[in-house]
């Protein structure tokens, strides 16, 4: 991979694509109708951008299957962590759910003392 014209062109195109996707992210997150759709939208766009950086700037498209597997394992592990934790949180009864009292007045939510802990 020499630093020839074609390599520079690939890098520039990648940068332009990333900047364009950034504009699209801002539009989706800030100006599109709010809700879970926009949340999913910005995460998908972010994943596209991360994919571009990995494939072109980090040269993942030239790497062996071993490196690609090493690159993917954290995502699998993270899915397990999120999946297992969310399985618990999402199916807990309302009274036990975390942060059930999510107040909106920002600076007034602090409390000095935490509740007593379990006897561990």
């Amino acid at each position: 991979m020499e630093d020839n014209a074609s390599t520079i062109r690939v890098y520039r195109s990648t940068l332009l694509a990333l900047l364009a996707l950034t504009v699209l992210t801002v539009y989706t997150g800030k100006f599109a109708p709010p809700g879970l759709g926009s949340i999913a939208g910005v995460i998908i766009i972010a994943s596209l951008k991360a994919g571009l950086v990995a494939a072109f700037f980090m040269h993942l498209r030239f790497e062996s299957r071993l490196i690609i597997a090493v690159c993917l394992y954290p995502l699998v592990v993270l899915s397990l962590l999120i999946g297992g934790t969310y399985l618990d949180v999402a199916t807990r009864t309302k009274e036990a759910s975390p942060a059930a009292a999510g107040e909106e007045q920002i600076p007034q939510q602090r409390s000095g003392a935490a509740s007593p802990g379990p006897s561990h």
Partner: peptide, 29 residues
């Protein structure tokens, strides 16, 4: 280096997991 980067992703992954859990429990907040 790639293995190390994987550990970095998982380091931030814990924070992302916390974000997702609390985000879904506190959409409005």
């Amino acid at each position: 280096m790639w293995i190390f980067l994987g550990t970095e992703i998982l380091l931030f992954g814990g924070l992302f997991c916390a974000y997702i859990i609390y985000r879904l429990a506190n959409l409005e907040l």
